[in-house]
C-alpha cells in the first residue's frame, strides 16, 4: 500500500486549525482550556498538533551542534582530557531533543492507559494514529518515531481488545498506521526510513529527521574503524571522512524550514508536557500495572512458566 503524498503542504501560512469558538485573536481561552481540562488537548485537530509539534522539534533539532554530536559519541574518550573529575561533557541541545522525544513517547503511552474504559482508550489510540499520520504527511520523522514508539511500548502494544476495536472501526487508518510504523522501524538499520528521507530530500521537501539514527551511525563508524591505519600512527582519514559525512547530513537537514503559524498555547503545552498536572505521567511499571488491570493476560501471551 502506498500513502498519498501529493497533497503535501510545501509551505503553509494558512490559518491554524483550532477547536470551535477559539480564534487566533483570542488565544487566552485556548490557554485556559488546556490548563483546566486534561482532555482538551484531544479537541485540537491532529493536523494542528502535528504542525506545532514540528515547529518545536525543528527548533530543537536546529540548535544541535556538530560538536555536541561528536561528544555524545566520543564522551568516554574525551574524559581523559579533563583535569578535574567534576568536569563533565555537556550537550544541552542534544539532551533537550532527547528528553523531549522520550517525554512525548511516554506521554502517548500514558494517555492510552489513562482510561479504564475500552472505548475511550480506542478513541485516544485513534487520535494518536492520526497524529502520527499528520506528522508523516509533513515529513516530521522525529514526531512519527516518538508516537509510534509510544504506541509500541509493551503496556500499550499488548492491549488486544483496544487494538482489535480500533482495527475493526478504522480499517483504512490502521493500514496507514502499519505502513508508517514500518517506515520508522529500526529493522535493517532503519533502511525504510533512510530510503524515504533521501527520496523526500531529492524532492527538496521540508523534513524533520530523527536524530537517533545519526547517533547510531556515528557510533558504528567510531567503533568499527581504527583511528590509525598502521603502527606508525598514520591517521585513518577514511574514518574522519565518514564522520564528517554524517555531521554534514545532520547539518543539511538543519537548513530546512517549516513555516506554519505558531500557536503559543499549544506549543507551551508540548514544551511543558512533563509539567502539566492535568496530564498523566506514569512510570513504566505503573503503565504495566494499568495495562494488566484493564486487559488481563490472555493465555497466549503468558510467560509459559514452568510448563
Amino acid at each position: 500500500m502506498m500513502i498519498k503524498t501529493e497533497n503535501k503542504l510545501k509551505c503553509s501560512n494558512e490559518e491554524p486549525l483550532l477547536p470551535k469558538h477559539i480564534t487566533m485573536n483570542d488565544l487566552s481561552q485556548l490557554k485556559s482550556s488546556l490548563e483546566n481540562d486534561g482532555h482538551f488537548i484531544f479537541s485540537i485537530p491532529e493536523k494542528e498538533f502535528a504542525r506545532q509539534l514540528t515547529l518545536i522539534e525543528s527548533e530543537y533539532y536546529k540548535s544541535v551542534t556538530g560538536t555536541e554530536c561528536l561528544d555524545q559519541i566520543w564522551g568516554s574518550k574525551r574524559k581523559k582530557e579533563f583535569k578535574h573529575e567534576t568536569d563533565v561533557l555537556d550537550y544541552p541541545n542534544v539532551t533537550r531533543m532527547i528528553n523531549h522525544t522520550n517525554q512525548l513517547t511516554t506521554w502517548v503511552a500514558s494517555c492510552i492507559l489513562n482510561s479504564e474504559n475500552l472505548k475511550e482508550r480506542e478513541n485516544t489510540l485513534k487520535y494518536f494514529t492520526i497524529l502520527a499520520n499528520e506528522c508523516y504527511k509533513i515529513n516530521n520523522f522525529n514526531g512519527v518515531t516518538a508516537i509510534v514508539a509510544g504506541l509500541s511500548m509493551g503496556p500499550v502494544y499488548r492491549l488486544h481488545n483496544t487494538w482489535r476495536l480500533f482495527q475493526e472501526k478504522n480499517k483504512e487508518l490502521n493500514e496507514i498506521y502499519i505502513t508508517i510504523s514500518d517506515l520508522v522501524s529500526p529493522k535493517g538499520q532503519y533502511s525504510n526510513y533512510r530510503k524515504k528521507l533521501k527520496e523526500l530530500d531529492d524532492k527538496k521537501e521540508e523534513i524533520m529527521p530523527f536524530l537517533g539514527v545519526y547517533f547510531t551511525d556515528l557510533t558504528f563508524v567510531e567503533l568499527g574503524n581504527e583511528d590509525y591505519i598502521d603502527k606508525a600512527l598514520n591517521i585513518n582519514f577514511e574514518k574522519r571522512r565518514k564522520v564528517a559525512k554524517i555531521i554534514n547530513d545532520i547539518k543539511h537537514y538543519q537548513t530546512k524550514n517549516f513555516t506554519f503559524v505558531p500557536v503559543k498555547p499549544i506549543q507551551d503545552f508540548i514544551i511543558n508536557l512533563d509539567k502539566y498536572e492535568n496530564q498523566p505521567h506514569y512510570t513504566e511499571d505503573e503503565l504495566y500495572d494499568l495495562s494488566l488491570k484493564y486487559e488481563p493476560r490472555e493465555e497466549e501471551d503468558d510467560d509459559d512458566d514452568d510448563e
Binding site: 511516554t106 518515531t145 514508539a149 529493522k187 545519526y214 547510531t216 557510533t219 558504528f220 567503533l223
Partner: peptide, 15 residues
C-alpha cells in the same frame, strides 16, 4: 540489532 548511540532515547528501546 544494535541500539548503540540511541541508549538515551530510552523510550524507543522496546521497539
Amino acid at each position: 540489532w544494535d541500539t548503540a548511540g540511541q541508549e538515551r532515547f530510552r523510550s524507543l528501546i522496546p521497539s
